[in-house]
Design a protein around this nucleic acid. Structure first.
Lengths: 206, 206
DNA sequence: CCGTAACCTTACCCATCAGTAAACTTACTC
DNA sequence: GAGTAAGTTTACTGATGGGTAAGGTTACGG
């Protein structure tokens, strides 16, 4: 019983959330295959059959974790971007929200980015769909003038990838989200503007 | 016996490479915990005790895979960058080499990027060290004038992260490495130049 | 104060899989 | 063509861990 003290009987909805909290943590620490249902149950302060009763199989549990955490992340970003006028503002708000989320919910980010993405079709697809929702939103920002087909999509992927890497960096150095956002904007904003305007870099030498 | 036909006895050095080939594939497909030594042995066309005799434990085997694949990737990039004069040329050559490698050795990239990175200290450190060698090289390129402390480091992380994401994109669309490289340069080159010159973007609103 | 339903546990089964013991077979040397 | 070392296998063990059966305990409505 090293889990949080749960001396009392609790309603199902509460227990389920506790189990999901524990599961996110264990999956974040050990990965899908490395995690054991016993450990999840223990950390949740509950016996194993409870987990199976409420959340189903290990796959079901992992799926539930992914859905909950992805929804939280998405909600944070979309609500931040919601009331920003210009493209630049939306990008800045989105990045700040993202970096803030990763800093405050490392386990959640770990499960989504490191663990789920590394898995086969059942789960990687789920999280990739969420990722693509973000990328598509970015693409929409960058491609308002309907530029060349793949251009904007590739750019969005690169942008999100850069943000991922910077999030990791920032969570190690502990710098505030606004600073990290400035770094990223500093690197890519002119390139994005150029994409919006249709200009492009040409290879000079090889 | 679904593995490659190995009807004959082979010298140790050859068998070891076959085993590593098989291991890289299985680890790429299933992840460290999901992979079984039986499957590795079968795919290598050999029985399990051979794997243990030649490569040691599962951890040893995974470590050997990581080291071999990381060395291959590093060697390809460094040799490509070697004879390029300007910063711009070095970046372009490095990116092209990287995208080319990922396209041609998906399993290798998968193990290094998705599988090993998602693991705990023993392996993640190993591959992170290789990753940092690359990032440091990029930092050296970008920070030749000795700019502000963290700036160049953060930029390199973002750059490598963007490259990772684009590599994934490129491996899905199948576009040639030169095109992907142009996309990336198009996005970040001006920002990099600005970093080299010491200029910086400043948040305007929000 | 009794029933019943929601909450929760102990104790087990069995498949998978890392790792090994012991022996067999081919090739190469002297 | 004996001797031996390298290459290789079959057949096992022991632990881990997903999943379940059967039953115990608290709350709460009637």
């Amino acid at each position: 019983m090293t889990g949080v003290a749960n001396p009392k009987r609790l309603p199902r909805a509460v227990r389920e959330q506790q189990m999901l909290d524990a599961a996110v943590r264990v999956f974040a620490d050990r990965g899908y295959h490395g995690a054991s249902m016993d450990e999840v149950a223990e950390l949740a302060g509950v016996s194993k059959p409870m987990v199976y009763l409420y959340l189903g199989s290990k796959e079901d549990l992992f799926g539930a974790c992914i859905r909950r955490e992805a929804a939280r992340l998405m909600e944070r970003i979309t609500s931040a971007v919601h009331d920003a006028a210009t493209i630049e503002c939306r990008l800045v708000s989105g990045f700040e929200a993202f970096f803030g989320y990763v800093a405050e919910h490392k386990d959640s980010w770990n499960v989504l980015y490191h663990r789920a993405r590394a898995l086969g079709p059942p789960f990687a697809d789920e999280v990739d769909r969420a990722r693509h929702d973000i990328i598509d939103a970015v693409t929409g920002l960058v491609d308002q003038r309907g530029a060349s087909a793949g251009e904007a999509g590739a750019l969005s992927h690169a942008l999100v990838g850069a943000a991922d890497a910077l999030a990791e960096w920032a969570s190690r150095t502990g710098e505030p989200a606004t600073v990290t956002t400035a770094r990223l904007m500093n690197l890519v904003w002119i390139g994005i503007e150029r994409q919006i305007d249709g200009a492009s870099w040409r290879p000079a030498s090889s």
